[in-house]
């Protein structure tokens, strides 16, 4: 038995990346970033506000957190809705208590179904970024380009109509993209996306439709990863984020500004038995003299190109 000879050929074995989306770059060799107010660590919270249709479409894949039992999965439908109706308001209160402005990645369906949530987000001064149409709006290679373009356009249009502002940012469901996504987002006027988790600072990607910034929204530091996937407690989550902050704080004093991205899910950290831990974390962060609470747009805007 042997493999096809092409398996031992490496056409992209060359200097730099094996694709043309972005060049390699060493975080520690870049000019030091300086955040507003001379702060060292940008704490960027991104909330995922999601609506899961009771019937999963599975095209091209089923989103994390989607329905699991045979139809009708009231268990997961209502548990996810709990996050939007209840948990999210707890989070809003927690941010208000420390004066933090955050980014909320919103499914367009949320704006259509629950306009009251949108009004409250805007009134509190948070940023709204686009997070597809609803949780059936997943993207991966295989999705027709026209369908993907329409999905992105619809999500942006609906949020623009609901808020009066075209979203500057985009988060894909499960951070999953096709080969076309960065180009289609740039073409649609999106300034930054949050899908690629390869850095501790935002950086530019180049596409045939122009540049787009990527804000690396660490999945490793997300509540979904730490609490749901790794099955750790809210207290352990808090300890891990504090450890991350401490490290980035120290590093920022030598190498310049760093980013602590916190993706938070209302139906995960917004539960009664977890929210106090998160609330305490926010207060702890507020007390750190080197922390700067910032929205995604503020972080991207303060990052030198």
């Amino acid at each position: 038995m042997s493999l096809d000879p092409s398996y031992l050929e490496y056409p992209r074995r060359r200097r730099g990346m094996d694709h043309d989306l972005y060049p390699w770059s060493n975080l520690f060799d870049r000019p030091a970033v300086s955040w507003p107010g001379g702060k060292g660590v940008a704490v960027c919270v991104v909330i995922s506000l999601e609506w899961f249709p009771l019937t999963p479409a599975d095209k091209p894949f089923r989103a994390p957190g989607h329905m699991q039992t045979p139809f009708p999965d009231y268990r997961h439908y209502t548990s996810r809705d709990y996050g939007t109706r209840v948990g999210f308001y707890r989070l809003l209160d927690a941010f208000a208590a420390v004066g933090a402005k955050v980014s909320v990645a919103v499914n367009a369906a949320i704006a259509q179904r629950y306009p009251a949530v949108i009004s409250e987000i805007i009134a509190a001064g948070h940023e709204i970024i686009a997070h597809s149409t609803d949780m059936n709006g997943t993207i991966a290679t295989g999705l027709e380009e026209e369908a993907e373009r329409a999905l992105i356009g619809t999500a942006l249009d609906v949020l623009e109509q609901a808020t009066g502002t075209r979203p500057a940012g985009w988060l894909s469901i499960a951070r999953s993209q096709s080969w076309n996504t960065p180009r289609l987002l740039a073409e649609a006027g999106v300034r930054y996306m949050c899908d690629w988790v390869n850095d501790d600072l935002p950086y530019a990607m180049r596409t045939a439709a122009g540049d787009i910034m990527n804000l690396p929204l660490s999945h490793e530091l997300s509540d979904r990863q730490i609490v749901n996937v790794l099955q750790q407690s809210a207290d352990s989550y808090v300890r891990q984020i504090q450890d991350a902050y401490a490290w980035l704080d120290q590093e920022s004093r030598t190498y310049g500004g760093r980013l602590l991205p916190l993706q938070v899910t209302p139906y995960i950290l917004g539960l009664p038995y977890r929210i106090d831990a998160f609330d305490g974390l926010l207060r702890w962060l507020k007390d750190q003299d080197n922390a700067w609470f910032a929205t995604g747009s503020e972080v991207v805007g303060a990052t030198p190109r």
Partner: peptide, 23 residues
């Protein structure tokens, strides 16, 4: 495990060469 590009899988590992190794 996903259709290419597996954005999280690939970019998570790319983190090593941009950030993690040096640290």
């Amino acid at each position: 495990t996903k259709p290419h590009p597996d954005v999280v899988g690939y970019s998570h590992r790319d983190y090593a060469n941009r950030v993690g190794h040096w640290r």
